[in-house]
């Protein structure tokens, strides 16, 4: 017990890092998903192909490898560019936080692309026509009519993506981000109590994912409010 108290501060700050990375990559993943789905549904065959390549690659390569390749790949590239200008450069990398957040956002975004694409196809084309007939621009139609309609259909699967996103944050410790798995490794090395230290991590994750699940349930209810008392 005293071991846990000794490490509680580190766990707390580790958990904060997890929440921060979740928030940042969630925003990016939604953006990637919307862009990807729009590209897949566009008439441009170049856009279709780029979006297909994106989903094939990021749904087909293990998450851990994406994070490693993204981090080391960007570091090697940046370092060699740096050496062109300052030959004495030793090592430049993207902060593990941003490299990790970006990598998992790309992965979850590739799943969201497929979810959003399907949901966009479920939007009644008549409603989109009505928006166009009222003189709404393409951009307004997208954000005020198509996305709110699509959102209701996408929510159930998107809840799963949010849980994956949350759990994927555990992988970022491999590139040295000081989140809770990283803290548990350190604590295990010192206290020699791996079971306790990793169990704490599991409980932290479980409590966060429970909150996410409850939030998703509330969101689904909210997004279906216009169907309550339907005639």
């Amino acid at each position: 017990m005293s071991d846990l108290i000794a490490w509680s501060d580190d766990y707390f700050w580790g958990a904060m890092v997890v929440l921060k990375i979740f928030a940042v990559s969630l925003v990016m993943a939604v953006a990637f998903g919307l862009i990807g789905a729009t590209a897949k549904l566009s008439k441009s065959s170049i856009a279709n192909k780029i979006a297909s390549a994106y989903t094939i690659v990021f749904r087909g390569v293990p998450e851990l490898l994406v994070i490693l390749i993204f981090y080391y790949g960007s570091a090697i590239t940046l370092t060699s560019i740096g050496r062109v200008f300052y030959p004495q450069t030793q090592f430049i990398d993207i902060a593990p936080f941003w490299a990790g957040a970006f990598a998992i956002a790309l992965i979850v975004g590739s799943y969201a692309t497929e979810t959003f694409r399907g949901a966009f196809l479920g939007v009644d084309p008549g409603i989109v026509e009505a928006a166009r007939a009222l003189g709404l621009s393409n951009l307004h139609t997208f954000f005020y009519v198509r996305v709110p309609q699509m959102w209701r259909l996408a929510l159930p699967s998107f809840g799963n993506h949010m849980l994956s996103l949350m759990k994927d944050t555990a992988l970022i410790s491999i590139i040295g981000l000081e989140e809770i798995v990283y803290v548990a490794e350190m604590a295990t090395a010192v206290t020699l109590k791996p079971f306790t230290m990793y169990m704490i991590v599991a409980l932290i994750y479980l409590s966060i994912t429970t909150v996410i699940t409850l939030v998703m349930m509330a969101l689904e209810k909210h997004s279906n409010r216009h169907l309550e008392g339907a005639l």
Binding site: I127, E129, A130, A131, L134, L136, Y144, Q149, H226
Partner: peptide, 21 residues
């Protein structure tokens, strides 16, 4: 088929284009 925006109340259906356009 009317094509009202299902996620908006009647009055918001009217207000959307007034505000945006």
């Amino acid at each position: 088929s009317f094509n009202l925006f299902p996620h908006l109340t009647a009055i918001n259906n009217l207000m959307l284009a007034l505000k945006l356009v």
